[in-house]
Write a protein that binds this DNA or RNA. Structure first.
Lengths: 229, 229
DNA sequence: TAAGTTAGTAAGTACTTACTAACTAAGCAA
DNA sequence: TTGCTTAGTTAGTAAGTACTTACTAACTTA
């Protein structure tokens, strides 16, 4: 019987502000509701949250907005994540796995320290370019104030990142003697962060990865020991 | 979420259903109301906003919270700034004048370029240390999304800052030949920004000015041309 | 195919928020 | 004193907000 009954399905929430459903409206015959599996929806919700966080800011994002973007009702979102905080937790875990996954791949390669350093930077910038909401989310009060556990998780994660960079610098032979790896780490990570932030605020007015790689090169040039002519 | 319950000062229970008129207030006089001038209050409101922005985040700050901090009612705040946006405008203008004032003083001094560079950095970090809400406000959606004019004003301001740094670098003779002043500017400003941000997030766990000055020194060491031994 | 599970909805609760209206009284000047 | 200006109040509105309740219909499986 496939889809015999539809009854009064076409009831849309009153606050239609966006085109939203592209597929349904285009069909001549009424389409039966397409239910998705919970895990599909969860993924959709996480992706919608990332997109909307970028557009509106994480602290201004309402469940309603996410629901509209996904194309379901607001309580529909809450079915999958009973509390709003749960959405942020899922988003954060998503980001964390994205990051550490990329780092692992680079760190387990056989590149030279300085090459790994460059690769880590490019990977991080590339991820931000693909997911521009990252800086805003990491700095959001949603994480910084409301969720201590998650904030700590990120703290540990970043500490790990610093640790990797620090080790790579210490291993690299071409750097000048007086250079403190801890200082160099802060300068490198700071360059990544500030470039990403400037890219965000400027409305993506330049190529993030390209610019970041260039600035890292200039920075690293200053770390290399002077040629003993 | 949401705390800051009402607890408003001098709240007398109005539920007395006495037949008396509402205007019979002559006998109730107990506290001598302390009225302040508008400009005094405005200053207080701006300062309260800066403090609370630091504690709660600019995007989460309510007029009510400001009112409680200042010690008047919520509409009392709106008397001085009819729209919430007006508060942000005043805060931003306050910050702008604080910054440019400090810069002017340094730039009109007779220090060497590299000394001015260091002084600008220290001044900027010192201002942030004294007014920790600055980074959060500059990055807030309140400014970045809601107030295009103000965002542009800040953009111009920061462009000016970059310009000053850029010029000082170009003037400084001890830097290596290949160094592009524009790149160096981004690295210096980036170091200031990222250090300030890290200081904020870490809960002020180190001395901002001291750390920033140190990192700048390490960075500038890399800019200096190698000693022709 | 009947029966249970679950994605989804409409309607509503309780609360916060920016902003308004109408009034009160402090402070000043004649 | 009188009278004006204005900092401040209480009381209220309309629009959001996260979250709940009670139900429905699509899907799954025995």
């Amino acid at each position: 019987m496939a889809q015999a009954k539809k009854t009064s399905k076409a009831k849309k929430p009153a606050q239609d502000t966006k085109p939203a459903q592209v597929k349904k409206a285009s069909e001549v015959k009424k389409v039966v509701q397409k239910r998705k599996t919970a895990s599909e929806r969860k993924t959709e919700i996480i992706e919608a949250t990332l997109q909307l966080s970028d557009e509106q800011g994480p602290d201004r994002l309402s469940i309603e907005a996410i629901a509209i973007k996904v194309g379901i009702s607001q309580p529909g979102v809450l079915r999958h994540f009973p509390k709003k905080q749960d959405i942020w937790e899922a988003v954060a875990n998503h980001l964390i796995s994205m990051m550490s996954q990329r780092w692992e791949k680079i760190l387990s390669s056989d590149m030279s320290p300085i090459q790994q350093l460059r690769a880590l930077t490019s990977a991080q910038l590339g991820l931000i370019q693909a997911t521009p909401a990252i800086p805003a989310i990491l700095l959001s009060r949603e994480l910084q104030a409301d969720n201590k556990i998650l904030r700590n998780t990120f703290f540990v994660l970043m500490k790990g990142f610093h640790g990797h960079i620090n080790r790579l610098i210490a291993e690299e032979k071409s750097f000048r003697k007086g250079l403190d790896p801890a200082d160099a780490t802060l300068l490198i990570v700071g360059t990544i962060q500030s470039t990403a932030l400037r890219w965000s605020i400027s409305g993506r007015s330049f190529d993030l990865v390209e610019k970041g790689e260039h600035l890292l090169k200039v920075l690293l040039d200053g770390f290399i020991h002077p040629p003993t002519k």
